[in-house]
């Protein structure tokens, strides 16, 4: 039996918005520590790993581990019906074949309830291996989102070059090329506006902007984003 209440639905709305274009059908793996999602995108090029800790819900109750197979397009449509400030309760019974969602407006004058059918999703256990990355860049997530959007006008690929005191995003295509250099800015007042480049060795790697733009949709969830790069292993964002 799972019953979890989120004080404001906006958090789950943002999460589903960020992953719905990457993940078709996947399991919410629920246990007493929270709700986890690990799924590759449909073209098996990217992995989404998400953990919503039990502490973020109040109350949170999960009697035994259950995997809720969800179609994310459906969940995204249902989440559109929730107001940002509504509190949201998700429930699944023992041998559940539906996930129940309830949205309650702040002054409880409107209560919406939806059931979405659950499906069997084959669960292969995936995760991101612990890696000692050559370069780790911390920067404002809105800035990263903007860089990915701006450079998409020039090319479908962006080369990220991390050197000692700067990180450069370069895009070159048939019509021309563009580059954006971001420099570290220690000692800023707002933590989220900080830019740091931690380098074991310089790296220069190319990535698909299609995926980076999808990942950047999660920017509204956190003010700061960390990019971790090494040769021959996937970029971690």
């Amino acid at each position: 039996m799972l019953e979890a209440r989120l004080p404001s639905a906006v958090t789950l709305k943002k999460i589903i918005d960020a992953v719905k274009e990457l993940v078709q059908d996947a399991n919410f793996d629920c246990n007493d520590s929270g709700i986890a999602l690990q799924a590759m995108d449909s073209s098996h090029v990217a992995l989404v790993a998400l953990l919503m800790r039990a502490e973020g819900f109040d109350p949170y109750r999960c009697d035994r581990n259950i995997a809720l197979g969800i179609n994310f397009a459906t969940l995204a449509k249902v989440m559109k019906c929730a107001g940002n400030d509504d509190n949201l309760t998700i429930k699944a019974g023992e041998d559940a074949d539906v996930l129940s969602l309830m949205f309650e407006s702040t002054n409880s004058d409107r209560i919406s309830e939806f059931d979405i059918k659950l499906m069997d999703v084959d669960a292969d256990h995936l995760g991101i291996p612990e890696t000692d990355y050559s370069a780790t860049i911390k920067m404002p997530s809105a800035e990263f989102q903007r860089i990915c959007r701006d450079l998409s006008v020039m090319s479908e690929t962006v080369t990220i070059e991390a050197v000692k005191d700067a990180v450069k995003f370069i895009a070159s295509g048939d019509t021309g090329s563009g580059s954006i250099t971001v420099k570290p800015n220690q000692a800023v007042d707002k933590k989220d506006m900080e830019v740091t480049v931690t380098l074991q060795e310089p790296v220069k790697l190319a990535f698909s902007l299609k995926y980076l733009n999808h990942f950047a949709k999660a920017s509204t969830l956190a003010g700061s984003v960390t990019l971790s790069l090494s040769d021959d292993v996937p970029l971690m964002i």
């Binding site: 590759m40 090029v45 995936l126 995760g127 292993v233």
Partner: peptide
């Protein structure tokens, strides 16, 4: 195809 099976291996090596 090679990339995809590399990635599946990489992510399931956890």
């Amino acid at each position: 195809q090679l990339l995809q099976c590399f990635l599946r291996g990489y992510f399931s090596s956890v």
